[in-house]
Write a protein that binds this DNA or RNA. Structure first.
Lengths: 217, 217
DNA sequence: GGCAAACACGAGTGATCGCTCGCGTTTTCA
DNA sequence: TGAAAACGCGAGCGATCACTCGTGTTTGCC
């Protein structure tokens, strides 16, 4: 609809300030949440004046949108390289590694991502983009499971399994991110992979091995 | 330290107002989060004036604390009846039912609980009580798993398993609460139980059945 | 019935927040 | 080198929020 009416030409200094402000915003959002964070606090964290902040962002919401947008973009790039055909053909343990490791690394490096995506207090635009990302990830999980599970698997159950696998991943991810870097975190990562392996193994067993004893439930 | 200096004597009407205000607060907190909720909005939702609200609560924080306290109390009562000796002796599938079902029911009936416990924006007192509850639940999970797993299981791994089982439960719970009541939710519940069963079965197999094929990881 | 206390009200108050504006400084470019 | 544009500042403006207070109504108790 409306073109950006301000083809403002930025200097290198300005780009640096923007990055600096977004980093500050990420830190403060992460610590206090979006609503409880004041724009003055972001400016203070970035060591600039409120006026300077508003030279680069029209309002508080735009800061969160820009930050969230960049994080989502980075995440998209990452998961785009994850659901590749060669990965899909991997044995289940390696498949889990290939999918989880990049996601975990990203979320550990960018804790603001989870903080921004999770709150019910974030501006609507972020929630929308998050929903899109969520749906996209979910459909890729569905596709992947569908490609490897028995073809007789009802779509309805496929959806349930994909939903639950993703939800379980998010739960484990929260634990992992909260754990202190080091062996504790590594242990949690290994444990989450165990959960997912044992959950998915009966469905995704390699061809010809589908006679494994399905547990009593 | 300080005794409550106001042994204010409440009428039945007052108690009703308090319940009404807490219910309204639960709804609005749930919809908008703690910080973004104004006390006037709570009063409006409860169909009373701001002045009336402040007759029963000294400030906004006290509302959240009272609400959170009541929910935590109710949850404690519930989980107290869940980790009983007779439950501990149950076969794993029934054990999972016995533990998960009350928790899930409570959280579906009181969505404000998750909303209040989860935010990093809640008043410190709530966070403390939540940490206590969390630690208490976790230790009971540890105890239960420890009682049933192989005695040779290192405590270190026991801790990891309990942490992960609880984290996975929380992830699945979020999916369940978000699902619309009905078959979708029931399906999600069954799926979460499958996850936990398959994760814990190798550890908690009944005595004498511990020769089950442990998966390659 | 009458009185004190609890309840209910809602306009108002001080503080804080998002955001602006005027002015001074630095960078770009011809 | 000079002017235009981008950058940087921080006091301050209007709006909103948590919370108060003076006044009127209802309830419990003798």
């Amino acid at each position: 609809m409306t073109e950006d009416p301000k083809p403002r030409r930025r200097q290198a200094r300005g780009e640096r300030r923007i990055a600096q402000l977004l980093q500050a915003a990420a830190d403060v959002f992460c610590a206090n949440g979006y609503t409880a964070t004041s724009t003055n606090a972001i400016a203070r964290e970035a060591k600039v004046s409120p006026g300077t902040l508003y030279q680069y962002f029209p309002n508080k919401e735009a800061i969160a949108i820009e930050l969230g947008g960049r994080l989502i973009h980075e995440m998209r790039e990452r998961h785009g390289q994850v659901f590749t055909p060669e990965n899909v053909a991997l044995p289940l343990p390696e498949l889990i590694d290939a999918i989880l490791d990049p996601m975990i690394e990203f979320n550990c490096l960018n804790p603001a991502f989870l903080a921004l995506m999770h709150g019910s207090e974030v501006p609507g635009r972020i929630a929308e983009e998050h929903d899109e990302l969520h749906a996209s990830l979910l459909s890729q999980v569905r596709e992947l499971i569908g490609a490897r599970a028995a073809p007789a698997l009802p779509v309805e159950e496929l959806d349930r399994v994909a939903d639950m696998a993703f939800a379980v991943f998010k739960g484990g991810l929260a634990l992992i991110v909260a754990a202190p870097e080091g062996p504790a975190r590594d242990g949690a990562v290994a444990e989450l992979k165990k959960v997912l392996y044992r959950y998915l193994e009966p469905l995704l067993a390699e061809e010809g091995a589908r006679v494994t004893t399905t547990p009593p439930r």
